[in-house]
Every structure is written in structure tokens, then in C-alpha cells.
Amino acid sequence: MKTRIPGMPGPAAHILCVIACLALTVLLTLTGIAFPAVRLLTDQALHLSVAQQDAVVDAQYARIGEKVDALSQQYPFEPKTAMDFITRDSLLDFNAQVVRWWMGFLQADPALNAPGYEISGLLDAVKADETFRAGVPQTSWTATARDKVVKNVEDIVTQTVAPLRLSLISLAVASLLSKVDAPALAGYLPYVPWALLAVCLLLMGLMALLTHKRMGKGLLYIGAACGASGLCLGALLGVTAWLNLPGYLAASWPLLAMQLRLLLQGLALPTGLTALALLVLGLALIGVHQHQMNRLRQSVAEGNSYGA
């Protein structure tokens, strides 16, 4: 026989709780997405840590070496002459310069001129290079060294670090910034996830208020929403992994794919942990509800007035 338990929330409270639970699931999922998204848009340290990783800089250096070798076949010069000017430290600095450039788009008075890698002293070094002197007529040493070698080596470094049409991006951003007040919007960005979290807490409070007669029921709904948002975030991470965007880019832009993979890994770990924490919290709250209700049913069946 079914045991009737007194002091339960009415059907209206249950219906409202179900609606609030669905809203809470959506909002908690959005909050879980908003934190990494805002970090992606505003955390310069994250981008610097990816751009300046040893593996990335080593791969860039190797790629630059290959391209400089190919260039030295076209215009005779010793590749070592150029490579002596491209140091690991200068690559680290240029990576940081590119990151600061594009992260600065959302700040007031952004530097819209695209960054370029400049090598001072290479022109003289190329002109003094024995292979270059032997292979190029003396009358065109300066012009060939400046326009064909130094310019190309600088372009090689710039395009290896940022294989993007930087000038085009600068133009597009300048046009966009004339229409949108990006710095003002960017100022609000860090508050968005916290505002979402505050709304989630408000909704949880509302559900607790609706089920004040039996708080265990409120925990059931809050737990269900937490667990559901944990599942949604997990599914989102799964879909992102399945889409394999770095793999899509790897064929044509291996260095960019490597950086994107590192960036996604950096964001996926905290998001995955958040999803797991939400799922565990949700199941724990449901467990508390189950435990409380069992105790309640037991005491009611025994004829006590426990908790009623």
C-alpha cells in the first residue's frame, strides 16, 4: 500500500519547479560555456602560454629553417647567414607581439597596424655573404638582398608565426570598430558568467522557496538541473572533440592546428572538470533527497510524526 506522506509541495509547486529546473539547466549550461568563452576572449596569459610553448616555437623554428633553405635555392645565399638573425628569443618576442596585437582589438585605442617581423643587420650580412656575392651581379647586390632575401625572410617568419592575412584582418577590424563600441562591450564581458551564475543561484532560491514545505524535493530539482547541465556540457565537449577542428586545419596549417589544439586542451580541462563537478553535485543532491524521503517514509509507516 502506498504510504501517504504529509507536508509535500502541491502540484502547482511541482510544475513551477519543473519549469524552473529546465531554465536552470539552460542557464547553468550557458554559465559553463560563458566562463571558457570569456577566458578565450580576454585572457592574454592563456594565449601567450600557448604561443610561447616550447613545442610551438621549436616547430616554428624548424619550419622557418625549411623555408629559408628553399629561398636560398632561389636566391643564392647561405641559409645560416639568415638563420643567425632569427633567434629563439626573437621568435618568442614576436609571438607575444602578435598575441598582444589581436588581443588588443577589444581594448580602447587598439593598434590596428599589423605586426611584422623586422630583422636589422641582415641586409649587410647578406651582402657580405660569399655565396650571395658569387651568385648575384655586383650591381644588384643591394636591391636583391633587400627585396628578394631580407623581405622574403621577414615574410617567412611573420607568416610562420601568424599564417593570417594580417592586413586584411586589420582592415576588417577597423571597419567593425567604427560601428561597434568594442571596448565598452569588452568591459562587460568578465561580468557575464558571474551574472549568469547569480541568476542560477536566484532560480535555485526560488525552487527552494517553492518546495519550502519539504526541502528535500527542492534538492531533487536543483540536483536534477545540475546533473543535466553537467551532461549537456559533457556532450558539448564530446561534440567539440568529435568535430576535431585542429585535425581539419592540420593538413594546410599544421602550426596553427597545433596552437588551436593546445588552446582547446587548455580550455577543455577546466570545462570538463566543471561538467564532472556539476554531475557529481547533482547526483549527490538527488542522493540526499532519496535518503531523506526514505527516512521520512519509514517514520511515517512506523506511525511517527518525524518531519511531517
Binding site: 502506498k2 504510504t3 529546473c21 529546465l22 539547466t25 531533487l220 540536483g223 536534477a224 538541473a225 545540475c226 546533473g227 543535466a228 547541465s229 553537467g230 551532461l231 549537456c232 556532450a235 554531475l279 547533482g282 547526483l283 538527488i286 533527497h289 532519496q290 524521503m293 526514505n294 517514509r297 519509514q298 509507516a301 512506523e302
Partner: peptide, 17 residues
Amino acid sequence: VKTVRRPLYWLLPLLFA
């Protein structure tokens, strides 16, 4: 006293997700 366990409550997160 035999208590009712209602194991389906554990599937509520899936239902809402």
C-alpha cells in the same frame, strides 16, 4: 518497514538534459 526506493529519480538529470 519496507521503503519505496524510486530508482528512476536518478535518471532525472538525463530527462532534463
